[in-house]
């Protein structure tokens, strides 16, 4: 199993003094897939990635990276790894191009051709000193350095938080290429659409614990589809069908939620009632995510502290 897992973490714990940042986190990222890593600010994504990089020592639990121990085998493992931090700091008096070369040479041969391609794709001027770059441009330096390598595993910590939509598209294109080459990606993010388009699998964490993980289809399968329809009559009868929840009618629009396994039967029944319009939407990743944060959302809406 380990061989097919680029990253495998079980019961990981990490405390900083009194702050218990990771509380038994589980995570698996299969080889050749993009694994989305979702969690709100402060939930422990960066801490997890820094444990995987061998920068932090875990207190308990196991973590393996490309089949090795991230702490003891850090150097060997880093040959096969590229990392983009969420907050990129560079040496102010080196240029972006110099920085990329330094980083690339530290884990493998520099491939000037790939570097040039990526610089063009991300529209980055490599001759500027790092102090003159904006946040987005500093992030591009780290992205170009990571994408110009042929590392089998990419660890990306909110890599697009400073990018504009055009660069976001360039990033998504690059990640698809990486995937096509059979490389693995662990992508921490809180941009749902990005993860939804790119990720094969998703891990959702909360306060240092994994609350949900699996393929997007798996996760959706365990939830309900939201249906809105306009019916001339018979709407009330739907409420009695197995698998239908929360039915309500307003201005002629009937809305309800359906369990996934009951969906075919319910839709057939709706069709029999000759609907004038019908919208059925699978839960978005955002919905899935927010389900785990009901209590915090409530606090936001009531303006109270949690």
């Amino acid at each position: 199993m380990t061989a097919e897992m680029a990253v495998e973490i079980q019961g990981l714990h990490k405390s900083f003094g009194r702050v218990h940042a990771l509380r038994g986190l589980d995570l698996a990222a299969p080889v050749g897939q993009v694994t989305g890593f979702l969690g709100p600010n402060g939930s422990g994504k960066t801490t997890t990635i820094r444990v995987l990089l061998g920068l932090l020592r875990s207190d308990a639990g196991t973590a393996s990276l490309l089949g090795g121990d991230p702490w003891t085998d850090a150097v060997r493992l880093h040959r096969d790894l590229a990392y983009v931090p969420g907050d990129v700091t560079l040496w102010p008096n080196l240029t972006g191009g110099e920085t990329i070369d330094i980083l690339c040479r530290l884990s493998g041969p520099l491939e000037p051709e790939r570097k040039r391609t990526m610089l063009e794709r991300f529209d980055l001027d490599p001759t500027k000193k790092a102090r003159a770059y904006s946040k987005g441009n500093r992030q591009k330096v780290a992205l170009v350095a990571a994408l110009a390598s042929r590392a089998p595993l990419l660890l990306l910590d909110e890599p697009t938080s400073g990018l504009d939509p055009i660069m976001e598209a360039a990033f998504q294109e690059s990640i698809r290429e990486v995937k096509a080459e059979g490389r693995s990606v662990l992508l921490s993010s809180h941009i749902f659409t990005e993860v939804e388009t790119l990720a094969d699998r998703v891990v959702i964490i909360r306060e240092g614990e994994t609350v949900e993980s699996g393929t997007l289809a798996d996760l959706r399968h365990l939830t309900r589809t939201q249906v809105t329809t306009v019916l001339d009559s018979g709407a009330d009868a739907l409420a009695a069908l197995p698998g239908v929840h929360d039915l309500s009618t307003e201005d002629g629009h009937t809305s309800f939620a359906v369990d996934d396994d009951a969906l075919p039967a319910v839709l057939a029944e709706v069709a029999r009632l000759k609907p004038r319009s019908l919208v059925a939407s699978p839960p978005s990743l955002e919905d899935l995510f927010l389900r785990h944060y009901d209590d915090e959302l409530a606090a936001v809406h009531h303006g109270g502290a949690r």
């Binding site: 061998g54 920068l55 150097v75 880093h78 931090p85 980083l103 350095a145």
Partner: peptide, 18 residues
């Protein structure tokens, strides 16, 4: 100084011993 500013982290993610 470099470690505090987070600059070393990028280097350490490469093949650089601790």
């Amino acid at each position: 100084a470099d470690e505090e500013l987070g600059r070393t982290e990028l280097l350490r993610s490469r093949m650089l011993g601790n």
